[in-house]
Amino acid sequence: MKRLSLFTICLIILIGSWVVLRFAIGGIVSVPIPGSVIAMYMGLIIIAVLVHISVEDSLFREFLRPIHETLVDNNLRVRRRVIAVLIPLFLLGYTHSIIAQRANPPGSPRDAHPSPPLELTYKDEVIGTMQDVVNPFRHYEKDDPEAFKAHVENGRRVYYDNCFYCHGDHLDGQAHFAPYLQPLPANFQDPGIIPNFQESFFFWRIAKGGPGLPAAGTPWDSAMPIWENYLTKDEIWDVILFLSDYTGYQPRTFGEAH
């Protein structure tokens, strides 16, 4: 059997990688991957291929050989003509895919996470600096487990009375109202949400809701109500305890780090 040329192998690797990313990983294994991320990965794979073929002169020559043959060998003129037609067609299709009008609305330009203020407030009362404020009931976890349990239970009640319509039964952001909201409600089951922020951050987001989001990183489009108008301070702290208790994730702390 004739051995495949290096050029063909590289082509197979590139097309194969795209198929795996687009259909296998972004379809069978998981949900679809955005086109921009696939483009980013494909860019890296092209770099990997180029690195491999250009490190050694002999490999580079071997890679270029079929291209050279196609261009100069008269026995390969059919292949040459086919390619001469295919390349402009590909470019035409690619250009069309970029400039064609679509009905899709643009994606959201919002930041990953809003920047919290330096001071944490409840209505007009200053609680303290964002850095230093801790959940006043957190210490019960060690000092008085029964009291802690009571606060978590209260937090559970507050959550299912007010929050679950958007954030879901299982705190995963998949709720009745969720499909109609943009951006989608936070998924607390995601390991990148609760462990990355202090409890004071969650207090701020709950208390101030969508309208309290900062000037930086606009435009915001959050449907989150201003919960400080409806919940007491203690209820907000309790619901934060419930979020971490239910998901098993601990909010960020800055303990004896040094």
């Binding site: 679809p32 609305p105 643009p106 994606g107 959201s108 952001g173 989608l184």
Partner: peptide, 16 residues
Amino acid sequence: LSKISTASELSAMGGA
């Protein structure tokens, strides 16, 4: 990925 995804892609992912 919200800044580099279309609305339909975001919807397919179930979030940002």
